[in-house]
Design a protein around this nucleic acid. Sequence first.
DNA 1: GTAGGGTTAG
Length: 625
Amino acid sequence: MQPRRRRLVPPRDPATLLPSLAAAPSQSRLREIHAHLLVSGRLASYSYLAAVIASLASSKHLSYARLLLPQRPATLFVHNSLIRALARGPRPHLTFAAFRELPFAPDHNSFTSLVRAATSLAAAASVKPVPPDVGVDLLAGSVHAAALRHGHAAYPHVQSGAVSMYAAVGDVRAVRAAFADIASPDMVCVTAMLGALSAGGDVVSARKLFDGMPQRDHVAWSAMITGYVHAGRSREALGLFDEMQKAGAAVSEATLVSVLTACAQMGTLERGMWVHSYVRSCRMRLSATLGTALLDMYSKCGFVSMAMQVFEIISDKSIYTWTSALSGLAMNGMGKECLDLFKRMEDAKVQPNAVTFVAVLRGCSMAGLVDEGRTCFDSMKHKHGVDPWPKHYGCMVDLYGRAGRLDDAVDFIHAMPVEPHEGVWAALLNASRIHNRVELGKYAMDKLMVMESKNCPAHVLLSNIYANSQNWKGVSRVRDVMKAKGVTKVPGCSAIEVYGMVHEFFVGSKSHPRYSEIETMLAEMNHRLRLQGYAANTKEVLFDIEEEEKESAISLHSEKLALAFGLITLPEGTAIRIMKNLRVCKDCHDYTKLISKVFDREIVMRDRNRFHHFKHGGCSCRDYW
DNA sequence: GTAGGGTTAG
């Protein structure tokens, strides 16, 4: 077959070329476009040249952009365009090189971009080391100092940029100082500041600032919603979103991303699906960011098939998209699928980062794929050049430990090139609990104690190990230690969404308005289960109490209350979805399995670590958690 | 024709 010849038709409007440049064209297409620009004489126009350079720099053709620069005696504006594009692009450290090579004295616009570059670098530094090997805090300080030296630090854009920059490096004092320097902050500055405050963990001050704003646009609303999401207060985030819509503020893509994150956090599938249909009805394009937030919401609501459907239709998948999909498969126990997807990612030549490997290793560990996990861990550094984090070592110990290969887990710990951190010992402790290795559990706990750990789940784990071996002295010792160290126990809470409303249940709480119905249902559940020969597993109750009392304490675990409520309110044939803030205990797990059989219901339960999909008396985790 | 809000893990 004859290869089709491409026609060289110059586009009528030069502006139509810019999007195709930013979309990272192939080399040959790029040369074609360049030829058009030269022939049509458009590269002679400064503003157009600047736009072209900016588009090129933000795509994958940085060197090409640089090539264009000396073609004309470029103005400061053209150089600033390049710097701006670099600062917003995927490799912000290149901004500094371009800044140093400026053939002009930098102006306030140059510094606006430089501050932005430092901000992006600081944000990226948590995932990968920053290329110019310098601490991001030092970088922020010196960028600010340079702006002062050149007399541009008082420019409003530099000022509000500095607020965000110091927030990104986590320097709360510098944030406050930078904000105090601004004589009369406008809406944009205040929004930057409220974002900075909530990023620093102070949503309360952020909210005060927000309430005091004379006017708020959609960015200000979004920033506040995001603040709540990052604080883990997703209920308030969703409430604020409702207010935002009542106030008539425009809903942007960024807003929806935050709202979806809130839905994911709470596990409110119905509201999440509402956002999805909103996106569709507005005919919004599913960008990588929006699509990823959507896919993540579906996985965190236990709706994996839908998550994967969304994944497939995202056309420009980012590293976040891939990682989120992998993590979704991992937490739903689909280790095999997770590895397959990782292979696809490698084939697609997408570079995995450290977070990606956390997801894949967790996938292996959830599904008991020990050898595959080991291979993956080894490939991290050798094949992909990703240095392992403490967490990756923890995943490996978990992988060996869960599978019952405790000796391998211990060998692995001893062979670690870095000092084992808390998570490693906690993983060993958990494995000891699963496989009833009391001595090994004590050993792991001793290590944790030395670290002055206030890790509450670890203490509870050790207590469970003691309880399993009827060692009530050990149990009460753990309790005393917890008291002495001030380890606070988070109360167990299960949430269930019914017709758009989220109902929360705590252990033994009777405060729900429909509690009497719940009580009746609980009695019926227990009755029907007993007919099936179910006896409560009371071993894991934290304290040594009389057998009868124990049973009633267990029967009031929050997940059972939520389950009863779901059985009352949700029509037959609909899955019951429960979100628990802590791990499901063994008894509740067995109990739920039986309920799924006796009541012929699909039950999806999300706990702190993963999902359990109960059906016909079995669970997707194959009791392996 | 230059600012502020957004996605993965924990």
